[in-house]
């Protein structure tokens, strides 16, 4: 019975059916199924399968995003129902955003989506994000990763500022900082004291795994 529900949840994610995923999540709670098990054995399995289909070229980006949205929809029902002390297993938690003054969102969103599909908890702050907001989000979420995107020669300077703000806030040891975007290079990342740079979303996931020593 519970396995049937897990399978349905997984399938809703694979099919990208947000409404179904949400309805199933509600049903699961009505049937008193363990919300954590629903997440781990249902949604996570679904998003992993979606990620595999994307990696193999079967799925295109829209399907990946729609799948992640379906997962989110069900998660919104299941997460608040977790018992105290219960926590969903995640590869890591990343706070990601595009730095202040910069409105380019495509690359940052893609990185976030790929991280979600690879089991990370992703807190996507959006674009034009001041350092202070990154700091607040890290404190609130206990994240172990920060991702800062910058697409302009004039805003990449904000990545450096973010790193020094993290230091000032005493959070630099807690998080690994990844940077990216068109004007950013590996040597620039090194120069400003970031922990890593990735050229695209797929290598961003690899980098994140390496930085937090997660099993690939």
């Amino acid at each position: 019975m519970s396995q049937e529900m897990f399978d349905k949840l997984a399938q809703a994610v694979i099919d990208g059916e947000s409404e179904d995923a949400e309805a199933l999540a509600k049903q699961a709670l009505e049937q008193k199924l363990d919300p954590l098990a629903c997440i781990t054995n249902g949604l996570t399995v679904g998003i992993q399968k979606t990620g595999e289909l994307f990696a193999s070229g079967e799925y295109y980006l829209p399907e990946l995003i729609i799948g992640a949205d379906a997962m989110k929809a069900a998660m919104q029902i299941l997460e608040p129902a977790l018992l105290s002390g219960q926590e969903r297993e995640v590869t890591g938690t990343i706070v990601i955003g595009t730095v202040e003054g910069d409105l380019h969102e495509i690359g940052k969103t893609l990185v976030g989506t790929m991280m979600t599909a690879n089991g990370f908890r992703v807190i996507d702050l959006g674009t034009d994000i001041p350092s202070a907001d990154f700091i607040d989000a890290v404190k609130e979420s206990g994240a172990n990763l920060v991702g800062a995107s910058a697409l302009l020669t004039t805003t990449m300077l904000q990545q450096e500022k973010l790193i020094s703000s993290l230091k000032d806030a005493g959070l630099r040891e807690q998080v690994k900082v990844m940077v990216g975007g068109a004007p950013v290079t590996a040597s620039y990342a090194k120069q400003i004291g970031a922990d890593g740079y990735a050229e695209d979303a797929i290598s961003a996931v690899d980098l994140a795994m390496r930085l937090i020593d997660a099993p690939a």
């Binding site: 994307f54 295109y60 829209p62 495509i106 695209d200 979303a201 797929i202």
Partner: peptide
């Protein structure tokens, strides 16, 4: 367009 596999512009 975006490359639907990599997101490249």
């Amino acid at each position: 367009l975006l490359n639907p596999r990599t997101g490249a512009y």
